[in-house]
């Protein structure tokens, strides 16, 4: 497991199994058949069920909170692209590293078990004189 420092986010991982997808559908009220109906999903260009993008996106918020504490989330912002679908039974892990471009900014991602980024983008935390908390 990656060592956590203030320059890298503490990783947070989840296995996105059928149970997790259905639980998240109930949490959000999002029963889009592409997530919950294998027969429908198989008929689409995606070729099968994909998990809700935000199911995995939440891991980035959790990675930030685990690294900097929940108090640091005030004023935090995320800007991400859902780059690849997350398939049923994928193991995904969120992480990130401090960007060299701008204080308080982190390059963030969620990667699957093959190391492929399924979500990628940036997160920005409240910036103090000392830098991002």
């Amino acid at each position: 497991m990656m060592e956590t420092t203030l320059d890298s986010l503490k990783p947070v991982a989840l296995t996105v199994d059928r149970q997790a997808i259905l639980a998240y559908a109930r949490i959000t009220g999002d029963f889009n058949p592409i997530h919950v109906d294998p027969e429908f999903a198989a008929s689409t260009p995606l070729g099968g069920v994909i998990a809700h993008g935000t199911l995995s996106l939440n891991l980035i918020w959790q990675s930030l909170a685990a690294t900097f504490g929940s108090q640091a989330m005030r004023g935090a912002a995320i800007d991400v692209r859902f780059a690849k679908p997350v398939r049923e039974n994928d193991r995904v892990e969120a992480g990130g590293r401090r960007s060299t471009n701008e204080p308080g900014r982190f390059d963030v991602w969620v990667k699957n078990q093959d190391g492929i980024a399924v979500i990628e983008g940036t997160a920005t935390l409240f910036v103090t004189k000392e830098g991002a908390r």
Binding site: G53, T54, R74, G75, A77, I78, V80, F82
Partner: peptide
């Protein structure tokens, strides 16, 4: 869902 920005 292709892209998401969110500021808390």
């Amino acid at each position: 869902h292709a892209r998401q920005r969110l500021e808390l």
